[in-house]
Computed example of a mutant assay.
Amino acid sequence: MSNPLHRSRRATEIRFPETLDLGATVLRQLRLGDAEAVFRRYAADPEVTRWLTFRTLRDVEEARGFCTLMEKEWEAGLTYTYALLEPGDPTPFGTVSARVDEFHVSFGYAMARDRWGRGHGSRALSALVEAALAQDGIFRAWAFCDAENPASARVMEKAGMTYEGRLRRWHVAPNVSPEPRDCLAYAKVR
């Protein structure tokens, strides 16, 4: 039996904009038409997907499945997944997602290696954290990374999130091991 006091927020309560122009980084809703770029630019790269919660994609059909699911989750108000773009270039080089659950939003991100270290991740994450915390009823914005992925931890720190601690045996990085791994948790609250 479900608890009537525990329910996920829906699209009618929480909304994220379809597009955010952050200057050097543009975020727009991920679409099915982005599948080839998602596959080619980052999701088929074992170095990019090493610490992520999904296996390195084997073909563009898997990327199409991902993009289709993300469009449906956007419409349902569950997960808002953005394509990362540079101004004037319509080809996505990564994604960042915001998952709404009750009074908090969690984030995940990935991008092509040739875009690492340029500030795209921290710019995108910072903007989405602020957009989440500006909404009524959202009090916590958080994300985690594998304990052996310091570059991702730096993205969260640069986005204004505070280190909260180690989550022991929290997630599976299937490209590393089938066993749960330790993660570092970061958050910003209001």
Rank of each mutant, 00 (worst) to 15 (best):
R55S: 10
R166C: 15
P4I: 11
R55Y: 00
D146Q: 04
A37H: 14
S2V: 05
R113A: 14
T79Y: 02
I138W: 09
V105P: 13
F54E: 09
V26A: 06
G88K: 02
T81D: 12
R99D: 08
A132V: 03
R7N: 07
V129H: 09
R7F: 15
E164Q: 15
F103M: 00
R181Y: 04
E179Y: 13
W170T: 01
D89V: 01
A98R: 10
S152G: 14
V129K: 02
P92Q: 03
N3D: 15
N3E: 08
A44H: 14
N3W: 03
R190Q: 01
R9V: 12
G23S: 13
A76F: 00
T95F: 03
G33C: 09
I14Y: 06
N149M: 02
F139L: 07
G117H: 05
Q29F: 01
W116P: 04
C145G: 05
P180S: 14
G121M: 09
A134P: 01
R115C: 11
A76V: 06
A134N: 12
F39K: 07
D101S: 10
R55E: 14
A127N: 07
R169V: 00
A132N: 06
R115F: 15
S97H: 09
A11T: 06
Q135F: 01
A11P: 03
D45N: 13
R41Q: 15
G119A: 07
F107D: 10
N149C: 10
A127K: 06
H6C: 07
T95E: 13
L32F: 12
R55F: 01
V176C: 11
R123L: 10
L30A: 13
W74L: 08
E36W: 02
Y82R: 07
Y42G: 11
E179S: 12
R190T: 04
R55H: 02
A151C: 03
E61Q: 14
S2R: 09
A37W: 07
Q29I: 08
D59T: 07
T49C: 15
Y80H: 05
R55L: 11
T95A: 14
A141D: 03
W142Q: 13
G94A: 11
R115H: 15
A44T: 12
D182P: 13
Y163M: 10
H120D: 06
T91F: 00
F93N: 08
E36R: 13
T162V: 15
F39V: 04
P4E: 07
V189N: 10
V100C: 09
T68Q: 13
R28C: 09
S106M: 03
N149E: 12
R140E: 06
T53D: 10
A147R: 12
R113S: 11
D146R: 09
I14W: 05
L32S: 09
D45F: 05
L85D: 03
P46Q: 10
M70D: 04
R10H: 15
T25C: 11
P17L: 05
L52I: 01
H6N: 12
A127M: 08
C183M: 11
A44G: 14
G23K: 13
T49P: 05
R15G: 07
R118E: 09
D114Q: 14
R168M: 12
T68K: 08
I14R: 11
P4W: 07
A11H: 14
G165A: 11
G94W: 14
E36V: 01
L57I: 01
F103L: 00
P178T: 04
K188V: 08
I138D: 03
T49V: 10
D59W: 02
V100P: 11
A185I: 02
R40G: 08
W116H: 15
D146T: 05
P87Q: 06
D101H: 12
